[in-house]
Amino acid sequence: MNALSIEEVKRDTEIDPGEWRGIWVFAEQRRGEIQSSTYELLGSARGLAGKLDVPVTAILLGNEVKEPGSLLSAGADEVLYVKNAALDHFGVEPYSKAIANLISERKPEVVLGAATFIGRSLLARIAIKVHAGLTADCTGLDVDTEKRLLLQTRPAFGGNIMATIICPEHRPQMATVRPKVMKPLQEPYNSKGSIHEISVDSLSNRVNFLEFVTDDTSRINIAEADVIVTGGRGLQDPKNFAIIEELAGLLGSAVGASRAAVDAGWINYSHQVGQTGRTVSPKLYIAVGVSGAIQHLVGMQSSDYIIAVNKDPNAPIFKVANIGIVGDLFEVVPKLIEELKRRKET
């Protein structure tokens, strides 16, 4: 076991990029379960590591994490597992301190994390500690192999423009990556490495974690879902949300909502898709009675496939839809439910 020292991290201003090597992925776990976004990051990291000819390291913090070995088969050449009871539940202070110390000690050239609530809050603090640039919520990553620069592409200005960002003079090059955009490896990675446990002595945390409240557990969380059926103001009445729920039930999908539906009190905020809600990138997004205002589009337009039902042929949602149905949702959706039930039976 290696011991990690917990002194204050020095903020280097003069760095030699040549000393920094390797790609790190922050392996996010919740209640001991490694999150799917981590496997996506490892898939993407393998591609970058091939181009840079460096190993991929997964950084795992926790105490009783289930199957840390899955990080190796998902693409890591080694796992640094900082194990401590104080790291069981996420805490931004001990996590950022432990990771910043590892970074200063081992000098990776790239550090990636998922752009989840945890990832965004955590990497933002680490980037300040190690004096690195951090690009938020990337949807594309590539490398300039000659200059060993990470080319980080992300939407900005509410998705109206894309920007490619580099970080030439600081290391590591840090980015958070939008969940569901990168693909995990199809085949298990034949990793030759292993899991290195690292112990830490004292990890102070001024924030007192009391408990976790899970929002309506019967429902699937939209950030994780492969399929989302979203209802908008076109539903007209909260009880009509039942047809969205029924459709979602048949597809085993999550239920999303436009802001108008949330503001009307038809469904709670954790279902809201869009600029003030969640950004989602499922494989399939079905929008029902949603106009597709720009603030809604920015939260869902990176979905792989979009189907929209709206009675207004000029609704902006049709600009991003792969299949657009101009029609009354109260006629189309019940028919669809019927059709799906019939197909499921046969």
Partner: peptide, 25 residues
């Protein structure tokens, strides 16, 4: 530390199909 090197419009989504005159079924 970060530098924007390129700004470009988001790639257009592949042309979708719009079905305007179809029966609900």
């Amino acid at each position: 530390p970060t530098q924007v090197i390129k700004v470009f419009p988001p790639p257009p989504r592949t042309e979708g199909e719009l079905f305007a005159d179809v029966e609900p079924a």
